[in-house]
Simulated scan of single mutants.
Amino acid sequence: MMMGWTILTIIPAILLISDTALFPLLPLNSLSAEGLFWLTSSGTAPYGVATVLLILLLSYQRLGRAEFISLFLTISLGMCTTLGLNHYLKPFFNEARPNAVWLEQQYLLNTENFYTLSKAERKAQMTASLERLEHAETDMVLSPLVKQHWKNEVGFAFPSGHTLFAITLTMIASYYLLLAGNLVLPTILFIWSITMGFSRMLLGMHWSQDVLASTVLGGVISLFSLFFIHKTFPYGAKLYTDLSAKLRLKQLTLKP
């Protein structure tokens, strides 16, 4: 799990150090862009709720009752922490999104004025900017799904709430699943987390530093949530002790 977290952290760190921007590299009217939209939607309400429920259902089929209760409590704590932290940090850092900066470079938006408006007013101004974009001298063309995404995502950039959500959920679920001997679902979750970060950058929603910071924060929140639940409730400690004993017994049995 820690190796996976390290890999997830290294990728946006390389992009940040090399000063590589992924937006606007991808044609946003392509099937790939629409695929990334649906991927990123798995971390957006209400689809994000469905994602959590699906992971809980799959975990319920693979864990014992005590272990599942511990997983449920840890995910609940982790998700509440990420939501609260994301809500506090965005207005604190007041960072413009890459797509808003790009629109400003095309003289279609004023970010200084844009982020002083209410959310409803920002949506209206973004809609007007995108209408002018259709007649501007630029190669940028948005698919209807991506255009709607830009209209809805008008908040600040830092941190990436989607990445924070994906990393926290992946780390917590993978901890319990790996202890239960399941490798397939954690692998799928880590791939989902990586592509979630890429989708946010390619769609013009976040900078590499946003994804990097969210990856680090997601890991810290996961470790804190696991530690807190294990200290507060006996299920986690019992799970670790029982599975460790079974693993040691299996290793002794396999020795010639």
Rank of each mutant, 00 (worst) to 15 (best):
N113G: 10
L117I: 08
I75Y: 01
I69L: 11
R122W: 07
P91G: 07
N86D: 15
G64K: 03
T81V: 08
N99L: 14
L77D: 02
Y60R: 08
G64M: 04
Y47Q: 14
F92W: 08
S70W: 03
C80E: 15
Q125Y: 12
L57D: 01
Y107F: 11
H87C: 13
L85G: 06
L58A: 01
L77Q: 04
E121M: 14
I75M: 05
A120F: 11
S42H: 13
R122V: 06
E104M: 01
V101M: 12
E104C: 02
L56F: 08
G64P: 02
G84V: 04
S70I: 04
E104F: 02
F92M: 06
P91K: 07
N99G: 12
T81Q: 06
S42C: 13
T74H: 02
Y88S: 11
R65K: 11
T74F: 02
N110E: 04
F68K: 00
T82E: 06
H87F: 15
A96K: 07
R97L: 11
Q125T: 13
S76C: 06
E104G: 02
I55K: 05
L89Y: 02
K123D: 04
V101E: 11
T44Y: 09
L73K: 05
L58V: 01
W102E: 11
N99S: 15
T116V: 12
Y60V: 05
L103V: 01
K90I: 10
G84F: 04
A50T: 13
Q125S: 12
P91Q: 08
T127F: 12
T111F: 02
A100D: 04
L89N: 04
S118P: 07
A50E: 14
S41P: 15
I75V: 13
F114P: 00
F92A: 05
K119N: 07
G48L: 08
R65M: 07
N86S: 15
F68N: 00
F114G: 00
Y47H: 12
L57K: 03
A66D: 13
L54A: 08
Y115T: 01
T127L: 12
R65C: 08
Y107R: 10
Q106F: 06
G64C: 04
Y88M: 13
L57M: 09
Q105I: 14
L109D: 00
L89F: 04
Y88G: 09
L83C: 15
Q61G: 03
R65V: 07
Q61Y: 01
P46D: 04
T111L: 02
L77W: 03
G43Q: 08
L53C: 12
T51A: 12
I55T: 08
I55G: 05
P98T: 07
L54D: 08
L85E: 06
G84I: 05
T74K: 01
L54W: 06
